[in-house]
Design a protein around this nucleic acid. Structure first.
Lengths: 187, 187
DNA sequence: TCTATAACCAAGCAAGCGCTAGTGTGAGTG
DNA sequence: CACTCACACTAGCGCTTGCTTGGTTATAGA
């Protein structure tokens, strides 16, 4: 289907409901009500409920990808700056598009195989950026350890923030990123 | 309700299905079939579907608590040994009772308020062990940073392992624990 | 003014849901 | 023997689900 502005707005609302209730418990009637239309009208915009889920996740992942690329293009070239930039970019998009990313992280299994394959490639492209930056940091000796485990630990710590971080508190996402990088860097 | 051995076995089967399908998509008919009984008979053992979820999570959390306590009681008294012991214990229970813990981590929101309050206290008791150990490690200067953030990052990295760790691979849970502790310790 | 099209609606279908009611049944107990 | 009780069964109620249908309205270009 197309990418009309209306559809984009509906996708944003769907993401919010999916986070609030979970994908399975969000009914097409709830989605329609939130969008100010009747449930039947929803199927004019999306062919089925699955497609709404895929649209939400695609939107979020695309944003993550472009934000991370932009961050790497504007930061300093040294491995430490690039590591900082990726961590900051990750948390920036995680909380700017929080709903979409929570859905991507916790409702991934509800995607049908076709959508999962398509979106899987998108996610791989994003993770490839991380692999590069972490390899550089390891080569430069500013962090140590098994490259696979280090990647998983860092991304785990970052992704888990959506479960406890309070954006209305005093800490900014950048604070979190800096603290995490400081924690794992050898001194 | 009671804690008969039969009920314990049914709880184990339920945990497996909840992980495979998610709580919402697991129907009482599926549960019953897996247990080798008819759907109506299920309500002889559990008063409703909610209670099955609560039983699964309670089982997992109790195990985590006793394993962690045992680990702290048998390890050396220095902060580094205790940190190691907690990380190892966490991953040990995470993969010994993998199904129960995955349910606890990702289906927590499906608990009704009463069960959430009760199980919340259990979980708090477990997290209190972590707080103690991390405070000791900070005081001893073997790790650095904000105590709140450090806790969250460590637990995030550990909990996220259920999303990627392959128990049939070469790495043991203890390997993961050691690598994580090494990564965050100042050298 | 005519027409194409996007957007919407009321109504409802078939399937599946959690759960209940009422009824055996076989093992243990007095 | 009579009785209880844990456990399982059949049958289906009342409701919700995702999705479809057939038809109406708003808007904009020719």
């Amino acid at each position: 289907m197309n990418a009309s502005p209306r559809r984009k707005e509906l996708t944003r609302l769907a993401a919010q409901l999916f986070v609030q209730e979970g994908f399975d418990r969000t009914t097409v009637r709830m989605l329609a009500q939130e969008m100010g239309i009747k449930s039947g009208s929803l199927f004019h915009h999306f062919k089925d409920k699955q497609e709404i889920l895929a649209a939400v996740i695609e939107e979020g992942t695309q944003n993550a990808l472009s934000i991370a690329k932009a961050a790497l293009n504007t930061c300093d070239a040294d491995p430490e700056s690039r590591l900082h930039a990726m961590a900051r970019a990750h948390l920036e998009t995680l909380f700017a598009d929080r709903n979409a990313h929570v859905v991507a992280l916790f409702e991934w299994r509800r995607l049908d195989p076709a959508a999962r394959a398509h979106l899987g490639h998108l996610r791989d492209a994003y993770e490839a950026l991380w692999v590069t930056v972490i390899n550089e940091a390891l080569a430069a000796g500013i962090i140590h350890g098994d490259r696979f485990l280090v990647s998983k630990f860092i991304l785990g710590a970052l992704n888990w923030t959506v479960r406890w971080y309070d954006p209305t508190g005093q800490r900014t996402p950048d604070d979190l990123a800096d603290e995490l990088v400081a924690m794992i860097m050898s001194r």
